[in-house]
C-alpha cells in the first residue's frame, strides 16, 4: 500500500467517530447551516463605506497606516509628473518592469533604462534596479493593500526583489473588501489561476528584534501606489 493510501485510510478510520460541531456544546446532532460559514464574512470584517469616495478615503488611510504611499490622479499628465518627481527624489538610475498598458506609460515617463521581465530576465540585473514597477489586480479599501499575480505583474520576483515597489493602478480596480477581492480573482481567473497570487499589504516589514517595526526586511522598503 502506498503512503497515500495509508494516510487516507487512517483519516477515514478516524472520521468514523463524529466530532461535535463548534458551539454545539457536545451535541453531535446539531447540524451545519446549508451555506458555507464564511458567506457572511462581510458582515463581521471591519466595515467599509458604501460610496467610492468613502472607499478611496479608507484605502488612503489604511495605506498610510501601513507606511505605504498612495496618490490618486485626475489624469495621465498628473501621473507622469508624479513619476518624474518620484524618480528624481529617489535618485533612481535603473528600473525593472513588465509590459502593460500602464507600466509602458510609466516607464516612458520615467525615461530610465528598464529591465523588462516579460521574456525572462537576469536576476542579478534586477537586483541592481532601484525600483520595480508593476500593474495589479485590485486595490482593497478594507486593508489598504494591493493584489498582484505572476501573470499580470511581471512574474514572482519583480514586486519583491527591488527595494522600491511602485504599483500603477486604475480607479476601477478598487474593491471594497477582502470577500470582493477573492470574488473578483475567482471570476477573472478560475480555473486557470496564475501560479502566484499575492496580497501585498504595505512594504516588507519585521518586528523580530524586540517587536520594533523595521521596514524592508527582505522585500521592498518602500511601496508606492499610484492610481489613475
Amino acid at each position: 500500500m502506498s503512503e497515500r493510501e495509508k494516510i487516507l485510510g487512517r483519516i477515514r478510520e478516524a472520521l468514523k467517530v463524529k466530532a461535535p460541531r463548534p458551539g454545539s456544546h457536545g451535541d453531535p446532532l446539531v447540524q451545519a447551516a446549508a451555506e458555507p460559514p464564511v458567506s457572511h464574512a462581510r458582515d463581521w470584517l471591519p466595515s467599509v463605506g458604501a460610496s467610492v469616495e468613502e472607499q478611496f478615503a479608507m484605502f488612503a488611510r489604511n495605506a498610510a497606516d501601513l507606511k505605504a504611499e498612495f496618490q490618486l490622479f485626475a489624469g495621465r499628465d498628473e501621473l507622469r509628473a508624479a513619476l518624474v518627481s518620484l524618480c528624481a527624489a529617489e535618485k533612481w538610475r535603473r528600473i525593472a518592469s513588465h509590459g502593460g498598458e500602464l507600466t509602458d506609460f510609466a516607464c516612458q515617463a520615467i525615461g530610465l533604462p528598464v529591465t523588462l521581465t516579460d521574456r525572462g530576465y537576469d536576476v542579478q540585473a534586477m537586483e541592481k534596479c532601484d525600483a520595480g514597477i508593476t500593474e495589479c489586480d485590485a486595490l482593497i479599501a478594507q486593508t489598504g493593500g494591493v493584489v498582484v499575480n505572476s501573470r499580470g505583474a511581471g512574474g514572482r520576483a519583480l514586486s519583491v526583489l527591488p527595494p522600491h515597489h511602485v504599483v500603477i493602478a486604475r480607479r476601477e480596480q478598487l474593491v471594497a473588501d477582502l470577500p470582493a477581492a477573492f470574488a473578483r480573482l475567482q471570476s477573472k481567473y478560475a480555473p486557470d489561476f496564475p501560479s502566484m497570487i499575492s496580497f501585498i499589504t504595505g512594504p516588507s516589514r519585521t518586528g523580530d528584534i524586540e517587536r520594533i517595526l523595521v521596514l524592508g526586511a527582505h522585500g521592498p522598503k518602500k511601496l508606492t501606489i499610484l492610481c489613475l
Partner: peptide, 24 residues
C-alpha cells in the same frame, strides 16, 4: 497573531512556473 489588519504578504501558489510566466 500579530495585531495586524493583514500580514504584509499573503501569497497563494497553485503550481510551478506556468506557460507564459517569466519566472518561478
Amino acid at each position: 497573531g500579530a495585531g495586524q489588519p493583514m500580514t504584509c504578504y499573503n501569497t497563494m501558489y497553485s503550481g510551478p512556473r506556468q506557460p507564459g510566466e517569466c519566472d518561478g
